[in-house]
Amino acid sequence: MKSNDSASPRVMIVDDEPNIVTAIDFLMQQQGFQTASAYNGAEALRMMEAFQPDLLILDVMMPVMDGYEVASSMRKEDKWAGTKIIFLTAKGAEKDKSQGYGAGADVYLTKPFDNKALVEKVRDSLDLDW
């Protein structure tokens, strides 16, 4: 948790690549969002209880627990029904995308990503005006 502003949206970044987490964290904070980061799926699910994110930026290929598993287990619980999920992954094939949407993703983006596009999708998902 890098911000304590309770009114601003809460975004959790889940990726096993620390440099990518650093970059996204910078972009989200620039938008004034509160951020938290986790380096694998299990860690993310643990931290969510405390952080209560509005949106997850989720990598797929991670050790311990991958992004699909995180999304699926979230979608089984009502309390995360309002939490948006954006997959951000190097896996760009159609079948990966449909698997991602099947697991409960709202948006599916591929790496390498365009900073502006990512920010835009996050804002859209959070129903925020520019």
Binding site: E17, N19, A23, F26, L27, A90, K111, P112
Partner: peptide
Amino acid sequence: VTHELRTPITSIRSFSNILYDN
């Protein structure tokens, strides 16, 4: 291999953009 390449490229691109935009 592609995945392994994408990961550093993703970082490089994102940070280059950040530096460029800011």
